[in-house]
C-alpha cells in the first residue's frame, strides 16, 4: 500500500520535471505529462480497492497476483521513456 503510494508520488514528481521541459521543447512535452499524471491518478484511485483486496487475501491465506496493475505500471514507464526519447531526438 505504502509502496504504491511512494510510486504514485514519484510519478507526480516526474510529471512536474516533465513540465520543466516546456520552455525548451514546447507542447511536445504534454503527452509525457499526461501519461505520468494519468498513471499517478490511476494508482491513487485504485488504492482503496487494492488495500481491501490485500487485507482479504492475507485473512484468507491466499492472494492472486495483481498482474494487470504490474503490467500497466511497467508499460506506462516504457511509454514515458519512449516519449522522452522522441522529445530528445526530435
Amino acid at each position: 500500500m505504502l509502496a504504491w503510494g511512494r510510486t504514485m508520488l514519484t510519478m507526480v514528481t516526474a510529471s512536474a520535471i516533465f513540465l520543466r521541459w516546456i520552455p525548451e521543447h514546447g507542447p511536445l512535452v504534454l503527452p509525457l505529462f499526461a501519461v505520468s499524471a494519468a498513471a499517478a491518478a490511476a494508482i491513487y484511485f485504485t488504492q482503496r480497492v487494492r488495500y481491501r483486496r490485500g487485507v482479504r487475501g492475507i485473512t484468507a491465506g491466499q492472494l492472486a497476483p495483481d498482474i494487470a496493475a504490474v503490467l500497466w505500471t511497467a508499460s506506462s514507464c516504457v511509454v514515458l521513456g519512449a516519449l522522452g526519447l522522441w522529445v530528445v531526438l526530435a
Partner: peptide
Amino acid sequence: SLALLAGGIAVEAF
C-alpha cells in the same frame, strides 16, 4: 526506473 527517466530529462533540460 522513474528516477532514471527524470534524470535523463533533467540532464537535457538543466
